[in-house]
Design a binder for these strands. Structure first.
Lengths: 239, 239
DNA sequence: AAGTGGTCTAGACCACGGC
DNA sequence: CCGTGGTCTAGACCACTTC
């Protein structure tokens, strides 16, 4: 029977158990993670379920599998292709995350952005602009857009402390699932340069992302400008 | 019995069949791809195998699954997070791909690059530097490094025409499986600017990739500098 | 109510790695 | 040789969407 104790699928629980052992330092890079058959026995699941757990960890680059040899803990603690909030990204590097809100209001007339969110052109949108700081230095400018009809209360909620991801989950029961990103390089204009404390014309990494909920609905449009010396993107591609 | 006819796993054959129908225009974006149970019947495989095929297509963004509703062809023909050679990338946009080889020789003393390829610091490396052109304009400078002990004959092979991926596969039986990339922005120096026909200081997208074979061995180190107006990266992230 | 994706079972054979 | 990952089977129940 599908043992969905406390709502968490078995393969998720197995993943979590392994990740915990890695983070606790019990498993070091290069160490053998239990084989599929071992994991299946220990967690009392079938082989396919244990496999599924390992497959996801492999995709994220937490674990490496060598046919005939075994499954091993991968080198660093980098989550490839992982959708994470700024807060989470900083936490994974053990850095304090801070934000300064520059703008937080309801606007209208952003046709292109509305379209990217699958909304009518004249929709009201909540716009939140923040400077992201890591280790007390400005790292990025992030501008978010959401449907004001669905998430208008965001304009009143203080975005100073809490993560936007957490807000969406707690206040609206919306869980984010994946993001499609468009990445290029651009030169800092006067305003960006001032906010980030860098010379005008400096190269910046520009990331535009549309973030989807677990229901497949586009929820969030984010434009990010990142200081290239302070931020590099890590990606894994497959053949 | 695992039906590995002609060496291709069943789930790969199913994928290929679906992709073919999409590319042929028989399936348009939004159309229903057969359900898991349909696919299983048609291809005479079990449910889990049909599922596996769809899972990979979902990961690549070719197909969208809505629980309770069905599986649908996704919007564009973008392969997210897909490792593709420059030749393949251009082909997928129906553009002619051309390259000019600037440099193709065996070198020594690139310690850091050797390390990234898992080789001793003083290893001999083949270095190939190329200007990539799409639609008769220079788009990128790509510098590849490979182990000279394993692939020394590359220095003699003309890299003008053929794809490096194809060369590795045909001449050495090495199939590339995935790449880990590190992405940031940088300013064009004098040489890059001249080669790409842009002003000095212009922002460039810099991509460093280590490409691994199906055996998990690092085979190729590539440094790419891309004109940001001519190239944007598309990525999908997961939660 | 019928169909769908999401999860899961309890087995199986194969090719390959390391001893 | 034995253990490993890679592939596969023939079923099953659940929550959900669509009608």
């Amino acid at each position: 029977m599908p043992d969905v104790q406390n709502g968490t699928p078995a393969y998720r629980r197995i993943q979590a158990a392994i990740l915990q052992r890695i983070e606790a330092g019990q498993l070091r890079p290069g160490d053998v993670v239990g084989s599929e058959r071992q994991l299946a026995k220990v967690h009392k699941v079938s082989l396919m379920t244990a496999r599924h757990a390992l497959a996801v960890l492999t995709r994220d680059g937490m674990v490496e599998r060598r046919p005939g040899a075994g499954t091993f803990v991968a080198q660093p603690k980098i989550h490839f292709n992982r959708l994470a909030s700024f807060t989470e990204q900083m936490a994974s590097r053990s850095l304090p995350a801070r934000s300064k809100v520059l703008y937080c209001r309801i606007i209208r007339g952003e046709h292109e952005i509305a379209a990217r969110l699958g909304l009518p052109a004249e929709s009201r949108l909540v716009k939140v602009e923040r400077v992201r700081q890591g280790a007390d230095e400005p790292v990025a400018i992030e501008t978010c857009h959401l449907s004001a009809d669905d998430f208008g209360d965001l304009a009143e909620a203080g975005m100073e402390r809490s993560s936007l991801f957490a807000f969406l989950e707690r206040q609206h029961g919306v869980t984010l699932a994946n993001a499609d990103e468009q990445i290029d390089a651009t030169a800092a204009d006067a305003r960006s340069a001032r906010l980030l404390g860098i010379p005008v014309g400096e190269p910046l990494l520009r990331i535009r992302q549309v973030i989807y909920s677990t229901q497949g609905k586009p929820v969030l449009y984010v434009l990010g400008l990142y200081r290239s010396e302070r931020h590099t993107l890590l990606i894994r591609r497959y053949r």
